[in-house]
Amino acid sequence: MSNEVKHVKEEVNFQKNEQFTLTMMPGAFAKKLRTCLIFQFIRFVIINIKMIIVVGKSH
């Protein structure tokens, strides 16, 4: 059995504070999507459409 430490960058903060232990944290894929240009362009279009609908319903 290997004694190698499995260090997952996105998970280390869970241990830093008791408050952090009880919440959810994004993994590498979710974080990558936040700045992925193609995905974010699609989200940009969708969010804008949703916001325009909300603006329209508010006037």
Partner: peptide
């Protein structure tokens, strides 16, 4: 359907 939130670059552009 109209209450939502997400974090990303798209939000920054907006």
């Amino acid at each position: 359907d109209y209450t939502f939130g997400e974090i990303g670059l798209a939000g920054h552009w907006i």
